[in-house]
Nucleic acid binder design. Sequence first.
DNA 1: GGGTATTTGTCCGTATGTATG
DNA 2: TCATACATACGGACAAATACC
Lengths: 458, 458
Amino acid sequence: MTYDYIQLEKESGQPLYLQLYEQLKSAAQSGSIHPGQKLPSIRRLSEDLGLSRTTIENAYQQLCVEGYIDAQPQRGYFVLTSGGKRGVRPEEAVHPIPWQPRYNFGTDAVDSTCADLKAWRRHIREILNRPQAMVRYGEHQGELSLREALRDYSYGARGVVCSAEQVVIGAGTQPLLYILCGLMQGQVGAVAIEEPGFPQAEQVFADCGIEVLRLPGDDSGMRPEALQQSGAKVAYVTPSSREGNGSPIPLLRRQELLNWAAQTGGLLIEDDYNGELRYRARPIPAMQGMAADDRVLYLGSFSKLLLPSVRVGYMVLPQRLLPLYLARAPRYNQTASKAEQLALADYVKSGQLERQLRRLRKVYAQKSSLLMHLLQEAFGKCAQISLQETPLCVTLQFHGGPSPARLAELAETYGVRVCPGPEGKVTLGFAGIPMGDIAPGVHALQKAWNPPEFCISG
Amino acid sequence: MTYDYIQLEKESGQPLYLQLYEQLKSAAQSGSIHPGQKLPSIRRLSEDLGLSRTTIENAYQQLCVEGYIDAQPQRGYFVLTSGGKRGVRPEEAVHPIPWQPRYNFGTDAVDSTCADLKAWRRHIREILNRPQAMVRYGEHQGELSLREALRDYSYGARGVVCSAEQVVIGAGTQPLLYILCGLMQGQVGAVAIEEPGFPQAEQVFADCGIEVLRLPGDDSGMRPEALQQSGAKVAYVTPSSREGNGSPIPLLRRQELLNWAAQTGGLLIEDDYNGELRYRARPIPAMQGMAADDRVLYLGSFSKLLLPSVRVGYMVLPQRLLPLYLARAPRYNQTASKAEQLALADYVKSGQLERQLRRLRKVYAQKSSLLMHLLQEAFGKCAQISLQETPLCVTLQFHGGPSPARLAELAETYGVRVCPGPEGKVTLGFAGIPMGDIAPGVHALQKAWNPPEFCISG
DNA sequence: GGGTATTTGTCCGTATGTATG
DNA sequence: TCATACATACGGACAAATACC
């Protein structure tokens, strides 16, 4: 620590070493510096404070004899606990490791056996070896090489048609939505979202003072008539990965939504979360590429494709918003890591993202059918089991029986993590669990819920 | 490319290979796929589309004979230019390298000879070798280990008093301000900022519908009386690094601002940009630590301390805002890279950030005095030269003579980048230029501006 | 894993100012 | 006035622990 906050007065009559002693003592007593913490070395502090080493040494000596700190030769001075015992050394002060389930059907991770960590590491390393890149701020809009790579990738994988100029990079969807809200400032009254809504996006709209209208949808998604009636000029849709509904918005409905946009002059925000990850059927192309008239803003990301910890997303602006954006771009700092942007650009350009996508599709196809099969066997008689394809999970809909929260609790005692949902629903994600753990995981779940208090599974 | 966007209809009477041919042709003609680009292999595309290899081959054949694409045995099919020539291969399509000045007195980079890239690389490498960390999303508030490290660091270096719970990580100041604006939604009418303002922050407030009042300040910074009169409940101040003013807000004024907050129940947002980088005198501790009554929100960052390309910043919430934030935290995804967060945590905890800080202070002290000395010699007679200490730059104030823009142009022709400012001001940053380049850089500048059309330097 | 450079507590000689006799 | 003692402050030298490659 630099302890720059210490303020001493040379003229105060009081000896300097005593002033220092007092300040350090009160800091220790008030808990501002913690037991076990290392104090700055005598040399360092003397330099910082512009004092002689002896002065510091005297102050430290005083604290030593009074039992506040402990001198460890050639290592440093360390703060003791109030009881005078030596505090834990920093390395020993390890956090209590949060409980890790043996079988993780959560939705917050990807399977480490499938993640392409090796290639990612290689690319990051390569970028870090380019000092010219690292010592400079990045471009506001995102690195050009990545925007070009995404232009090509999004066209090939999703049919998104755009130039690199339309692509804006950001650290996930939210920062990009803030920029969008800024562009729309004052010109848009409300944004329509399909029930049950999408908190992460709604939060952004709320923060920017834009009203959110939740519209009930049908099996095919948001209804254009409802949209029309709501009077909203902007609609936020997640056509590929709908909350609580396994099927994406079908082509026909997409066309209807595009018609709504064309007729009313509205804007469609297409959040294509996991859009490329459809594996049982061919993915439905993005609406952005189907639209003839520039009324779709496309949002894409990579958390489930590459690594959840890599927060890089992008949006494709409609041409009509481009001049407005470019004028304002300098006022928005880029949020995504420059190193990760450049690494991702290479990763995409070298075709590895695409290879990874193919790999994952196969893996998820296998995992999902195995999991569906096992769950049908185990709980088919007492629950309705439905595959949520692109959200990479399966929901069990129980009628009666313990609450989802209780079921999740029971599962935890058997080392299984599942996600409790509303209305008797329990969700099991399969992105994060290795293939080989699925069968034992379901067995453990069966034990946890069996003899089921609510269901005759035999 | 995956070419998932291709949509064929089995029932349409039209042969499949012709449908495919048409789609590819129009894609090539519309420029959606670029000359030189490799088409997917026959095997791959046949798998993607669920068709026979022959179908694809026929379509490709057709495109070949019509000169749209070119078959390269054992390599693949490549798109030709409209003229029938082979397009440049992707690797050859290198970007025009943006002009790099020989002597960079810009403010957007740090000196690569001072940047601690080696240590940073080591820490990043270490993190990447921990798959468990990388395959999981991070915590919304930021990694705990980093928040703890910053709690200790900010106390030692800046006198900020807080718990790890109060620390929120983000990809720079802007994402953090959005969160703050969300917390204040509706409860705050306007934010006061000292003239000449700070566009990056104002943009966020504007996006969130919060009015910005620019208050003229005096030499010591924002005036409490003006603040009082404005009626604003929130004030945004940059006490360490004031735009166009070399000196930070002095202790007395800080106390007065704190008094304003205490008396009116207002909130001070303390953006401590480069606060730790004061090198000529001891840094003034942060207001956050001086305040007895929890009315300061502290903002810190690392771009100039570590690497500009690493966008990690943090804010320290006042206790009173904590419950509100914690309730809303799950709705804000973390924006900073998890790998960089964990690497930074280790970097800080191992004391290397502090060592780097010391190193940089020395370097900047040397650089600034050298630059000031040389500029005085060269332009002392025709410009007022003032050191902006923590912004790490020097401003030359010319009275008369060419416009700053013209001066910057002249400099560019001699390979020197400087930053034109308003009102006859030209700014020279010294963070990004190596020590040894300063003297020749100033000489080049002297040549560029000499024989000065405006100033007798002899 | 081992060799080297740096960091660090400790010890020691010195200088200055003040009070005492 | 001088000698002595003491408190305070400064910086050089040494050897062990640590960090780094």
